[in-house]
Computed example of a mutant assay.
Amino acid sequence: MLSNNGMEKVNFSGGEPFLVKHGKHLGEMVRYCKEVLKISVSIVSNGSLITEKWIKMYGKYVDILAISCDSFFEDTNKLIGRAQGRKEHIKQLRKIKDWCTEYNILFKINTVVNTYNKDENMSEEIIQLNPIRWKVFQCLLLEGENVGPQALRNAEKFYIDDDTFKEFLDRHREVPCLVPESNLQMQNSYLILDEYMRFLDCRKGSKIPSKSILDVGVTEALKFSGFDDAMFKKRGGIYKWTKEADKFSW
């Protein structure tokens, strides 16, 4: 339904998309999107459950694999909640980078700037890993999502102000792949679907669901998505998001 209404790219994120059946369901979904729908496919993961076996089996159906990395210090990752049991997050990140190179997947890194990593300088490590994009987000608070009495988790202790975010960006201004996203740029510039296929409207500082596209169709549900198309373009939402260069038209 989404493809028939013009969707050109889908991004699977979470939660952690590799949790269910060790990534088997995710693998079948990316296969379908690539083989049947012929659209660009990306995944955002913390990397902890990604294996070379999965990459060998399904990597050809993935254009971009983005790994969340908020620090290059393991102690800081533990404070943030990025600990991966006995696995070392940074070692796993480097493995995934090598797998992406070997199996022809575009590698990307996502970082959320917060209270615990705001003074870190990641320039050397990011330049060495050389992702196609380093998305740097300002920690965003949404009522019911990560703040407030109904929230499953509370992220207020992670929040940083605009000046602190700018200081982090200034410290990394020489990193060529840096793509910053402030709260203003991020909040309404994504089309987000939840597990019930409802668009989530973030304009009022919380995620307000539309009716499901399965009930009312894509066009009607989109009216309640809160999507800011102008901001999407302004923040660089259109870029080379497929590894098949001949299909890239802008």
Rank of each mutant, 00 (worst) to 15 (best):
Glu120Gln: 14
Ser42Arg: 10
Leu49Asn: 14
Asn121Gln: 08
Ser225Pro: 02
Ser3Leu: 09
Asp229Gly: 00
Met231Arg: 11
Asn188Trp: 06
Leu169Met: 05
Met186Ile: 03
Trp250Lys: 12
Glu195Tyr: 14
Lys135Trp: 06
Asp194His: 08
Lys204Gln: 10
Ile109Cys: 06
Tyr58Ile: 00
Val20Arg: 14
Asn104Val: 07
Arg31Thr: 00
Ser225Trp: 04
Asn183Ala: 10
Val30Pro: 07
Leu141Val: 11
Ala155Trp: 13
Lys9Met: 10
Glu195Arg: 14
Glu174Leu: 14
Gly15Gln: 07
Val179Ser: 11
Phe12Met: 02
Gly237Tyr: 04
Met231Lys: 14
Ser123Pro: 10
Arg94Ile: 12
Lys211Leu: 07
Ile67Ser: 03
Pro176Asp: 02
Lys53Arg: 09
His89Val: 06
His172Tyr: 01
Asp229Tyr: 07
Leu200Lys: 13
Phe137Trp: 04
Lys118Val: 11
Thr111Asp: 08
Val62Ile: 15
Asn130Thr: 06
Thr115Met: 12
Lys135Met: 14
Lys207Trp: 08
Val175Gly: 00
Tyr103Asp: 09
Gly205Asp: 05
Pro176His: 01
Leu214Ala: 15
Gly237Phe: 04
Glu8Gly: 13
Lys87Tyr: 15
Arg94Leu: 12
Ala83Lys: 11
Leu129Cys: 12
Leu2Trp: 04
Ser68Met: 03
Leu152Tyr: 08
Leu37Lys: 15
Tyr103Thr: 07
Phe18Ser: 04
Gly6Gln: 11
His22Pro: 09
Ile55Thr: 05
Cys139Leu: 12
Thr219Gly: 13
Lys223Val: 05
His22Met: 10
Lys240Val: 13
Ser249Gln: 09
Leu193Asp: 00
Asp228Thr: 01
Asp229Met: 06
Phe168Ser: 02
Val136Asn: 04
Trp134Gly: 07
Trp250Phe: 11
Gly81Glu: 08
Gln138Met: 10
Gly144Ile: 05
Gln92Lys: 10
Ile50Gln: 07
Glu156Trp: 03
Arg235Pro: 03
Leu19Phe: 13
Glu181Pro: 01
Val218Met: 06
Arg173Asp: 07
Leu200Tyr: 01
Ser189Tyr: 01
Ser42Trp: 01
Gln84Pro: 02
Ile43Gly: 02
Lys9Phe: 11
Lys243Gly: 05
Lys166Cys: 02
Phe107Asp: 05
Ile96Glu: 06
Asn46Lys: 06
Gly144Ser: 11
Trp241Phe: 08
Tyr116His: 11
Ile50Leu: 14
Met231Pro: 03
Asn104Ser: 08
Phe158Ser: 00
Asp161Met: 03
Trp54Ile: 00
Ser48Gln: 15
Ala151Glu: 02
Thr115Leu: 13
Leu19Trp: 12
Asn104Tyr: 09
Asp170Glu: 15
Leu65Cys: 04
Val136Asp: 06
